[in-house]
């Protein structure tokens, strides 16, 4: 048991990522407000970003900037962070797109509550 706890403590970023992921998932599941769902998605994505970045981290490592006279040889892995930049960009664009959609839904249905939208069914005209 203590072994497990020890592992968890050492790998706390992953643990945090998992918790974040769960929170996000739960938000997506239980909230019927469209915005909240979107936020849930964002939380989940953040969880994954966190995991990536944590994976690149090396305890005691340095920022990987090579300027020729830096004596350090232990750098943290820059690649995940760089990748996550891309990921964040993607996430932002998804969010933007989703917001636009929510806007359109709101215009058509007059609400952002998913349950009510579903109740209205397909009768709404263009």
């Amino acid at each position: 048991m203590s072994e497990v706890i020890k592992k968890l403590i050492i790998n706390y970023p992953y643990f945090a990522a998992f918790i974040l992921f769960a929170i996000g998932a739960l938000t997506v599941l239980t909230r019927s407000n469209l915005f909240k769902k979107l936020i849930g998605i964002n939380i989940m994505e953040s969880a994954v970003f966190l995991m990536f970045v944590a994976a690149g981290n090396i305890r005691g490592g340095y920022v990987p900037i090579l300027n020729g006279n830096n004596p350090q040889t232990l750098f943290i892995n820059p690649l995940p962070s760089a990748l996550m930049l891309t990921g964040i960009v993607v996430s932002v664009s998804v969010t933007a797109f989703a917001l636009a959609l929510i806007l359109r839904l709101y215009r058509s249905y007059g609400t952002t509550d998913l349950r009510r939208i579903y109740k209205m069914g397909n009768e709404v005209s263009e």
Binding site: V28, L34, K37, L38, I41, E45, V94, F97, A98, L101, I102, R104, L105, S108, Y109, I117, N122, V124, S125, E126
Partner: peptide, 15 residues
């Protein structure tokens, strides 16, 4: 609107 709704579902799930 139906398209928007379907898209939203799709978007959430795809994301």
């Amino acid at each position: 609107p139906r398209a928007a709704k379907a898209t939203f579902t799709y978007l959430i799930l795809a994301t």
